[in-house]
Simulated scan of single mutants.
Amino acid sequence: MRVQRLVAALLVALVAGCGPAVAATDDHVPSFRPAPPRPYAVGVRQFVVDPDGSRPLPVTVWYPAEPTTPPAATSGAVSAGPVPRPDAPVAGGRFPVVVYSHGLHSLPALHAPLTTRWAAAGFVVAAPAYPRTNLRARDFTRADVRNQPADGWRLIRHLVRLDARPGNPLAGHLAVDRFAAAGHSAGGFTTAGMFTSGHSPRLRAGIVIAGGGLAGSFAGPVAPLLFVHGGADPIVPESVGRAAYARSLGPAAFLSLPGQGHGEYLTPGRPGFAQVLATTTDFLRWTLYDDRRARDRLPADAFLPGVTILTTRALSR
């Protein structure tokens, strides 16, 4: 009964609503290049959006760094993974951006096994620590999740401005017309809440991990969505994720991990991690780099009998 009450409280807070997503201005950006054929080394930087405002937003950014060839130990999907170098020089070129949202009582650093691997694959991953739901929040408020989609859009607008700011190390390296949103648990609900009516077409794709929809989600410009969920999740039942999948518009996929809980499949070496990593990475390559071969690899990426089941809708569009 206690678990059921916790689930009910979480869902009531998360589906209560969300702040409106304010569209960013879609200015012309330089031409874009194909998906990188090899992994990158990874750098990491931190900054704070609106440090003097009412909702300061500390952000951790992982990004492709020079040199482009990482150490051999980082190349395997279930290896120790890339070791980010603080303030390393950014690799040449422009890279799509993924805004990654953590769950309740969590921090961006706790998701590094996934986010650093996405950075090595050629994406800039910007992960905010939300002011009232992160692990160190002094005034933790579960219901504040409804305000986090607006924080995500605030970060997107900041990154667009930062890309044009002379002297900033990331300036000129962000593909500011190619954003995705992704997140786990409450961060998955936050991600869904960014896809509301009138959202900017800059936001091209979403990945909802162990989450579901907020009020007003899945409206506006159609964007491909990937849902990842444990079949025995005791915190956010898989049925919540499947309901969000059914409500979503346009191309979508649902990666289920039968028998698994709220996120153990995000830990390297655990069953399903390699499949989740491959599926999410190729989903991002398809939606942000226009890599159709990556889209065609998704069924094979996700395939592990007894561990994963992939359902898709209209991915050939």
Score class of each variant (00 low, 15 high):
Val124Ser: 08
Tyr130His: 15
Ala137His: 09
Pro169Trp: 14
Gly193Ser: 09
Ile235Asn: 06
Ser54Ile: 06
Gly167Asp: 02
Ala219Met: 03
Gly241Asn: 14
Gly263Met: 07
Ser316Thr: 13
Ser256His: 00
Trp153Gln: 01
Gln4Phe: 01
Leu298Ala: 07
Val236Gln: 03
Val12Cys: 08
Ile209Glu: 15
Ala192Cys: 15
Gln260Leu: 13
Ala181Lys: 01
Arg45Met: 13
Arg292Gln: 14
Pro71Glu: 04
Arg293Thr: 15
Leu257His: 04
Arg285Asp: 04
Ser31Leu: 15
Tyr245Met: 07
Val83Leu: 00
Ala88Val: 01
Phe227Ala: 12
Phe303Ala: 11
Pro108Val: 05
Thr267Val: 11
Ala88Gly: 00
Gly172Tyr: 08
Pro89Ser: 05
Ser316Leu: 11
Gly261Leu: 03
Pro84Val: 03
Gly81Tyr: 01
Leu288Arg: 04
Pro224Gln: 08
Tyr265Asp: 05
Val12His: 12
Phe179Arg: 01
Gly167Ser: 04
Gly53His: 04
Ala278Leu: 12
Pro34Arg: 05
Pro30Thr: 06
Leu315Phe: 01
Val240Cys: 08
Pro84Thr: 06
Glu264Pro: 05
Leu298Glu: 07
Asp50Gln: 04
Gly230Lys: 13
Ala215His: 12
Ala72Val: 02
Glu66Pro: 00
Asp26Leu: 14
Ala223His: 06
Ser256Thr: 06
Gly241Ile: 14
Asn147Pro: 01
Gly213Gln: 14
Ala41Val: 04
Tyr40Asn: 13
Arg292Pro: 08
Gly152Val: 02
Val3Ile: 08
Arg247Val: 06
Ala9Asn: 14
Ala80Val: 05
Ala137Met: 11
Pro67His: 08
Ala73Asn: 01
Asp50Ser: 04
Phe179Pro: 00
Asp163Pro: 15
Asp27Leu: 11
Thr311Asn: 08
Phe140Ile: 06
Pro131Glu: 01
Val3Asn: 05
Pro128Val: 12
His158Arg: 11
Pro20Ala: 11
Pro305Lys: 02
Phe140Glu: 08
Gly76Tyr: 00
His102Asn: 10
Arg132Tyr: 12
Pro251Asn: 12
Arg154Asp: 06
Pro82Glu: 05
Arg85Ser: 02
Val3Tyr: 02
Pro51Tyr: 07
Gly272Asn: 06
Leu277Glu: 13
Ile235Ser: 07
Pro305Met: 03
Ser75Pro: 00
Trp118Leu: 12
Leu203Asp: 07
Phe140Trp: 07
Asp296Gln: 12
Asp139Ala: 15
Pro149His: 01
Tyr265Lys: 07
Ala278Cys: 10
Gly206Met: 06
His111Asn: 15
Phe195Gln: 13
Gly269Arg: 01
Leu249Gln: 14
Asp52Phe: 13
Ala253Asn: 09
Thr68Val: 09
Arg317Ala: 13
Ala219Leu: 03
Gly206Ser: 13
Asp27Lys: 09
Pro51Glu: 12
Glu238Val: 12
Ala171Trp: 04
Ala246Tyr: 00
Arg285Leu: 10
Ala129Pro: 03
Val124Asp: 08
Ile209Ala: 14
Tyr40Trp: 14
Ala205Leu: 11
Pro268Ala: 10
Asp296Gly: 08
Val49Phe: 04
Gly230Gln: 09
Val145Lys: 01
Val29Glu: 14
Arg5Gln: 10
Ala23Ile: 12
His102Met: 12
His158Pro: 05
Thr196Phe: 07
Val276Phe: 02
Gly19Pro: 06
Gln46Met: 13
Thr267Ile: 07
Arg313Pro: 00
Pro299Cys: 04
Val97Glu: 00
Ala65Lys: 01
Trp118Arg: 04
Gly183Phe: 02
Ser239Thr: 14
